[in-house]
Design a protein around this nucleic acid. Structure first.
Lengths: 141, 141
DNA sequence: CCCATTTTCTTGAATGAGTCAAGACAAGGG
DNA sequence: CCCTTGTCTTGACTCATTCAAGAAAATGGG
């Protein structure tokens, strides 16, 4: 598993460092985790890692396409390891939990704008808003 | 026009205060403006308004459905006066400018998730990402 | 029209995610 | 094994937004 992450890094022409491997591991193990949770997860294996190293790693890995950053309104940045399949997200308005929703089309942009305003569009990001099963049942009961 | 805003406020059972009227005016005049721009616009007419009053007004007006808040990843909160038509947005990856895109369906949720994960979904928010005409021509030239 | 009640606004401090910067350190090529 | 370059540590800092307490203003009843 750790060696898989090392391969991922090498494949992206990135240096293999312990913080980066640990960050990859933390995001793979905690989909949609925010930076704070990732920092805590990384420190379970590497107690001395600075928060800055985690921020740097997340940026580098996101720029390299190994991770994807999502940031629903009202939420801090979250990261996930599913990249390249242009899937979408459902966000609970009550507790903020995020779940994946497959994109029927698969490749970006999965939608074309009715009037693109002369923008050159490369991605259509879809965020579904609603209530998760837990919050939904809590409210109605 | 000011009286129109007063009617809007009364229609929403909100007290009519000068900051609120000014905030409504500023958002109607500056679609997709961020809070800082709204504060500056409001202070052209009411120089002494505190930033807190603007924040409070924006929250109240958004909660009442008179304004809509949008917050693309990497951007601060922005506000617009087009509400109720469930339109979407194109965001420029380079300069961050936001433009409206009509929704073909019109009413929320305009899309249904392929697998809703047992969430009860009430809105599908679509954000198109790309380059605006200006940034597009700057890069290619 | 004025008062009382309730909401809103002012003032000023605080929060917290994220960034900046300088020097110490480690990864990988030669 | 050493050098170069890129990464990490440390610690300060930014800035949008929120919190809190008291002053001021908006609606409804008299």
């Amino acid at each position: 598993m750790t060696s898989d992450f090392q391969e991922l890094l090498r494949g992206a022409a990135l240096r293999v460092t312990r913080p980066r491997v640990a960050v990859l591991g933390a995001v793979y193990a905690n989909p949609h985790a925010d930076t704070d949770l990732i920092i805590r997860a990384v420190r379970e294996g590497l107690p001395k890692v600075s928060h800055q190293a985690v921020y740097d790693s997340l940026h580098t890995l996101t720029d390299a396409g190994l991770l994807r950053r999502i940031q629903p309104s009202g939420s801090v940045a979250r990261y996930e390891s599913r990249v390249g399949d242009n899937h979408h997200h459902v966000v609970c308005r009550s507790c903020g939990v995020v779940a994946d929703v497959d994109c029927a089309v698969g490749e970006a942009p999965c939608l074309t704008a009715s009037d693109d305003q002369s923008f050159s569009i490369d991605e259509a990001e879809v965020t579904y808003w609603g209530l998760c099963p837990d919050c939904s049942s809590t409210r109605s009961s």
